[in-house]
Amino acid sequence: MATLSSKPGLRYSVSDWATNNKQISHTAENKRNVSHEIRQEGRALRNETTSKTNWDEYDSTRRLSDRINDVTRWKENLKACAQQLDAEMDALTLSKEETERALAATLLPLEVTAECLNLREGRRGMELVCDPVEAELKKEVEVIDGAQRILQQCIDQAFEQLCRLQEARQQLTIDLQDKIEALDVDMSCLSLTIRSPEISLKPNPTRVPPGSTTPQQWEQFSRYNITRAKEEMQASVQIRENNSITRAQVQNELEAQRMTVEFALRKRTHHEEQAYHEMQWQLKTTQEEIAELEKDICHLEEDMQAKTAPLKLVHTRLENRIKRPGMDLCRDEVQFGLVDEAKQLEATILALKQKLAHAQ
């Protein structure tokens, strides 16, 4: 009788086999269900992440566009402010140059006034008087000196304000240049897409670089630069107005003092001409009087000469009558008459001599 060989090992029953098959089928079904759920979740995640990525890309692009608009707006504001600042600097420079010309224009009047004072020092004698002309000329020197000091102060103020305007302009230029460079960067970023060949992964792109600012600080910085520039421009406008008013006032003061000096000179010249004509008349009258006096002296001398002969006659008669003899040597009326005549002639001659001596 033949014997059956049996394989050693554990043997399973049909029920175990069926149970195992069911378990495998159940496990496979569970795995498929899990896989299905994973696939569904993956698809949902893909859709969600795709939408999120697209939205984030769109939102970043929109924010870039808004940022570009903001930077462009501030750039235009800075540019307009810089142009206004340049115009104000040109206007202030022109005002400063006009003030410098006004200051230079005071040099010649000062030299003329000083020369007038020096020339008037050459007067001689009683003509060297401290008259109103000298007082007004000295006052004109003081007025011109004061005008020069005021104009120089205006020039110094304009120069200092120009320096402040240049500082504000430099700050605007730096800010404007930064805005232009930032616009170039943001415009370049805006032009990038997922298909751009120059995009790549970067190490730690989310880092915060040193010197970063907040949007509030960024806006406040540009606003401060514009505000400062406008304040400096307003101060410059005030300085230009003050310079214009000062130049007009100085011109009016110099013109008024010049007219005062000219009036004093004309008045003094008129008085001197009057005195000159008076002296001429006095000289002419005196010369005429001298001529008349010389004539009268000649007449006096002639009269004295004319009285000599009658005096000789009287003296001779008196001397001859002394020779009368005896009782005929009488002091008669003739004698008294001759004596009176002699005395009268001598008195007349003496009076003529005295008058002649006084006239000479």
Rank of each mutant, 00 (worst) to 15 (best):
A102I: 01
Q148H: 05
R120A: 00
C116D: 13
L103D: 09
C116T: 12
T113H: 01
R123D: 07
R124A: 14
L108P: 02
K139D: 14
C130I: 08
K138N: 08
N118P: 03
R149V: 10
K138W: 05
N118F: 12
L119S: 10
R149W: 07
D131Q: 02
E142V: 11
R120G: 01
D131G: 00
E127V: 07
C130G: 11
T113Y: 03
E134T: 14
E111K: 09
Q148S: 14
E121S: 09
R149T: 13
I144W: 02
L103N: 05
T99R: 01
Q148W: 04
C130F: 09
C130Y: 13
R123H: 05
E121G: 04
R124I: 12
G125H: 00
K138P: 06
R120F: 02
L107F: 11
V143Q: 08
E136W: 03
E134D: 15
L108R: 10
L117D: 08
E142L: 11
G122W: 07
E142P: 04
L151H: 01
R124W: 05
V112G: 01
R101W: 04
M126A: 14
C130D: 15
L119K: 08
I150C: 13
V129W: 05
E115L: 11
V112T: 09
V112H: 08
A102T: 09
A104F: 10
A102P: 04
L117K: 04
V141F: 06
R120Y: 01
E100V: 10
L103K: 15
E121C: 06
A102C: 04
N118R: 14
Q148I: 07
L107D: 10
D131K: 00
E100P: 05
A102F: 00
V143M: 06
R149A: 13
L107S: 12
R124M: 13
G146H: 06
A104H: 10
M126D: 14
E127F: 10
D145M: 11
A135N: 07
D131A: 00
A135P: 05
D145V: 13
E121K: 15
E115Q: 12
A135H: 08
T113F: 01
L128Q: 07
E100I: 13
A104Y: 06
C116V: 07
E100D: 10
A135K: 10
L103A: 07
V141E: 09
L107I: 14
D145S: 14
R123V: 04
P132L: 00
C116S: 14
L107T: 11
E142Q: 15
R149P: 03
D145I: 10
L103W: 09
K138Y: 04
E134S: 14
A104D: 14
L119C: 07
P109C: 00
V129Q: 10
G146K: 07
K139S: 15
V143N: 08
A147S: 12
E100K: 10
G125V: 01
L137N: 00
E111L: 07
V129I: 14
D145W: 10
P109V: 00
R149L: 11
I150P: 06
E115Y: 08
E136F: 04
N118L: 11
L137T: 02
L110R: 08
L137D: 02
A105W: 02
L151P: 02
D131M: 00
I150S: 11
